[in-house]
Design a protein around this nucleic acid. Structure first.
Lengths: 252, 252
DNA sequence: AAGTTTGAGATGTATAGACAATTACAGTTA
DNA sequence: TAACTGTAATTGTCTATACATCTCAAACTT
C-alpha cells in the first residue's frame, strides 16, 4: 500500500493531520485499502510525508474514532470491516438478549430461487434490460419455537453459483450479497415504519391479521452507491421494542 | 472550580490522561461543574497536576468526544448541556425536515394541571407517601393544521410556581422539568413500540381507531438516576418513519 | 522436539517547547 | 460615542524525543 506524499500541503491552512486523515479515508473508500489490510506503520508514514509521528497519530486517532480502522499495540493498524450485519437499529440487541438468555433461536429458509426481473425490481436497483435475473429469499426468524419475524430479500444475480443451504449460515443481506454476487456490500439505508400485517404475514407469524408490526426496508449499496440488495422485514409488534439511552452516561 | 491534584497517581499503570478524564467526568456528573461553567485552563491544570499540557489536552479530547465539554479557541473549555431535547431517535429529524420545508408546525397545550399522586405514579417515580402532587400535561403537535402526535407528560410537583402558558415555549419534558421542578434533567431512557391507537387517541389525531402508531415512553432521570419525569407519546404511523444509514460514509 | 529467552518492531504514553489562530478587553483615536 | 488597535490569554497545531508496553519470531536452552 502506497500513499502519495505529494498530496499533503504543509503550508496550507488546513491542518496536516486532517489532510492525512482525509487522504487515508479516501484510500479506504476507493478500496485501495481493503478491510483487514494493514496501514503503513506510523514511522513509515512520518518518514514518507516528513511529518512528526505525533501528527500521524492524530490523523489515525480520527480514523479510529470514525470506526474505519483499529490499532493493536505491538501489531499495527488495520482497516476495519463495515458493520452491516445488524438487522436494524437496536433490534439486534433483542437477538443478543436471546443469546445471553440462552434461548434457542434460529433462522429458517422458507424459499430461495432465481426470479425474472420485473419493472419494479429494475427500477429499485437502477438497472436496465440487461439484468434479467434476481435472487429471491424468504426467511423466518424464531426463538423457542415461536416465530418472531419474517423477511424477504432480493439481490442481483450475477454469479453462476448454486444456492446451497449450507451457505446460508449467514442469512443477513450483506452476507448473501457477498456470497452470491460479485458485489461488495459497503453501506446500508434502513427505513423503519409501523404497519398492520397482511394475511400472508399473519399466517406465517401465527398472529392475527391486521396486528401492528414493525416494517423495516433495507437497501444495501456497493462502494459506488449502486443498490445491490433490498429487503423487507416484518417484526411482531408484541415481541419487539427499541430502547435507547440519552445523556452523559456511557453505555458500557 | 478546584480539582484536587492529589487524586492523580503518576506512578500508576493507569494512564495519567485517563485518570484526569475520569476525575473531571466525576466532577461534572456530581454537579461540581455545571453546564455552561468553564473548566480551568489547560495551563492551570498542567501546573496544578505537574503534568504536560499535551497530557491535559488528551484528557479534554476524551471529554469532548464524549460530548461532555466543548472547547472554543481563544475563550476556554466549557461543560456542555446534556442533549435531552430530542423527542426520540430520529423522529426529530422529521420535525427538522418540517422546519426546513418551511411548513407551519406548532405544539398545542390541551391541558395542564396539578394532580394527586396515585399508587402507579408513586411506583413509577419511586417516591413514598410524602410526594402528594404531580404535574400533568397533555399536548398535541401539528403541522399544516394536521395533528401528527399526542403526548402525555408527568413530573413531580415540587415548586410553588404557577403554570404559565408563556413558559411552554419549550414543551419538551426536560424543559418542563427544569422550569417547573427543582430537579435537573440529566439522562433519559426511551422505549419505542408499535401499537394500535385507542379511541381517545384516534379522536384527538383524527385517524381511524386501531390505526397503527409509534408509541414512545420516555423516562427522565436526574444526576442521581432518580426518575423525575415520564411521558407517553403517540405518533401517527402513516406520517412518521425512521431512517438510518450504516457504513463508513459520513452523514454530513 | 518442546519450551524459554531475547530482541526487533509496532503502537501507547508523556514531556517540553514553539508558534498559529481566535477571543476578549483595555486603551487610543477620530 | 464609535471605531480602531494592540496585547494578553486561551485553545489549536506541530515537532522532536524518550521510554513503556505489547507482539511476533528467531535464537537459544533443556
Amino acid at each position: 500500500m502506497v500513499i502519495q506524499a505529494e498530496k499533503i500541503d504543509k503550508s496550507s491552512v488546513i491542518p496536516i493531520y486532517y489532510q492525512l486523515f482525509k487522504l487515508i479515508e479516501e484510500q479506504i473508500r476507493k478500496g485501495d485499502l481493503k478491510p483487514g489490510e494493514s496501514l503503513p506503520t506510523e514511522h513509515e508514514i512520518s518518514l514518507r510525508f516528513e511529518i512528526s509521528r505525533m501528527t500521524v497519530r492524530r490523523a489515525i486517532a480520527e480514523l479510529v474514532s470514525a470506526g474505519m480502522v483499529y490499532a493493536q499495540q505491538g501489531r499495527g493498524t488495520f482497516v476495519a470491516t463495515p458493520k452491516l450485519d445488524n438487522i436494524v437499529f437496536e433490534l439486534n440487541d433483542f437477538n443478543q438478549e436471546i443469546k445471553e438468555r440462552g434461548l434457542n433461536c434460529k433462522s429458517t429458509l422458507l424459499e430461495a430461487k432465481i426470479i425474472r426481473a420485473d419493472k419494479e425490481l429494475r427500477e429499485r436497483f437502477q438497472v436496465g434490460e440487461e439484468s434479467k435475473r434476481f435472487l429471491y429469499f424468504r426467511t423466518v426468524f424464531s426463538a423457542e419455537d415461536e416465530r418472531l419475524s419474517y423477511e424477504v430479500k432480493y439481490t442481483i444475480y450475477s454469479k453462476s453459483r448454486p444456492i446451497l443451504e449450507s451457505e446460508l449460515k449467514d442469512p443477513s443481506l450483506p452476507g448473501l450479497i457477498a456470497t452470491h454476487t460479485e458485489y461488495v456490500p459497503m453501506s446500508a439505508k434502513k427505513v423503519l415504519q409501523v404497519a398492520v400485517c397482511t394475511e400472508e404475514e399473519a399466517a406465517i407469524l401465527g398472529i392475527a391479521p391486521n396486528s401492528p408490526v414493525f416494517l423495516v426496508e433495507q437497501t444495501i449499496y456497493d462502494p459506488d452507491l449502486k443498490p445491490v440488495g433490498w429487503s423487507k422485514a416484518v417484526y411482531r409488534g408484541d415481541r419487539y421494542k427499541l430502547t435507547s439511552y440519552d445523556g452523559w452516561y456511557k453505555k458500557d
